[in-house]
């Protein structure tokens, strides 16, 4: 124990000698891992470019400022597409995630096997980033908004379903039992006993995800899946940096706006 006798006085130390040893070993190991990581990355890096970075950055900045307001006219349509990708994608995801969440929640699933399947679907959807889904759907459906929507949907299903099934598992059981005790059918138990309880988290999660999806839908265009990312990709490849900064300003405004909306809606339903 940390307190021991030494020359008839009590000495307090935070850790036992063995504990200290283990702690040091742990730190040494962690440090070794980090050094190994750093060397690994340094091997894959051309340091001449990195050394040159400040000049590149200054150059980039000079070309980006001021933004090109004339370019705005071209951006309305991609902007509309971007919002649609996020919104339609979220709607479809919600439609799919709600039943999935009830199948995955311990207290509403019809069978443990069904639950495991639903959980697997949720994990797969969540582990794969929107951009990867987008690459996939561009290959399958061809470039365009539809691939973007599909990508957003597939990624969001897992996200929404996970948060929702956790909310379902946390509901109070007494009201649910009370509805069962009136002789309500399973559907009525769901709509009267469970829905009202998870409704705030349902709206909160959906709007939160929509907010994230606005952000995500600005990049799916980088791989051809529609929206303002297409324009960004084209401008970057053509080295038209003043157009790039215009797009960045637009994206910034859009994200700030969507965050504001989502915060307001979430406040309203609670």
């Amino acid at each position: 124990m940390p307190v021991r006798e030494e020359n008839a006085t009590k000495v307090w130390q935070r850790r036992t000698p063995r504990g200290r040893l283990a702690l040091w070993a742990g730190w040494a190991l962690a440090l070794a891992v980090l050094v190994a990581c750093a060397r690994q990355i340094s091997e894959g890096t051309l340091w001449v470019f990195v050394a040159d970075a400040h000049r590149q950055a200054a150059d980039l900045l000079a070309r980006m400022v001021p933004p090109d307001p004339g370019y705005m006219g071209v951006l309305w349509r991609p902007l509309w597409d971007t919002v649609n990708i996020a919104t339609l994608g979220t709607l479809l995801a919600v439609a799919a995630a709600v039943p999935l969440a009830f199948l995955a929640a311990k207290n509403t699933t019809p069978h443990p096997a069904v639950r495991q399947t639903a959980l697997l679907m949720i994990v797969s959807s969540r582990s794969i980033n929107t951009l990867i889904w987008a690459i996939l759907f561009v290959i399958l459906f061809g470039p365009g908004v539809v691939a973007g929507i599909a990508a957003i949907t597939l990624r969001s299903i897992g996200f929404i379903a996970k948060l929702l099934y956790e909310a379902v598992e946390e509901i109070a059981v007494d009201p649910v039992e009370a509805i069962r005790a009136t002789g309500g059918s399973p559907g009525q138990v769901l709509t009267y006993g469970i829905f009202p309880q998870v409704f705030p988290s349902f709206v909160g999660v959906s709007v939160f995800r929509w907010d994230i999806n606005i952000r995500e839908s600005t990049i799916v265009g980088l791989v051809g899946a529609g929206g303002i990312g297409l324009q960004l990709d084209a401008s970057v490849n053509a080295l038209r940096w003043s157009q790039v900064s215009t797009i960045l300003v637009i994206v910034f405004l859009m994200v700030v706006f969507s965050e504001w909306i989502s915060a307001r809606v979430r406040k309203a339903v609670l």
Binding site: D174, A178, A181, T182, G183, G193, P196
Partner: peptide, 19 residues
């Protein structure tokens, strides 16, 4: 369920559906 609707049950006060 048909039997249950002939039997009313009253729980502790918190068994209402809050929302």
């Amino acid at each position: 369920r048909a039997a249950r609707r002939r039997i009313g049950m009253i729980f502790q006060a918190h068994a209402l559906v809050d929302r």
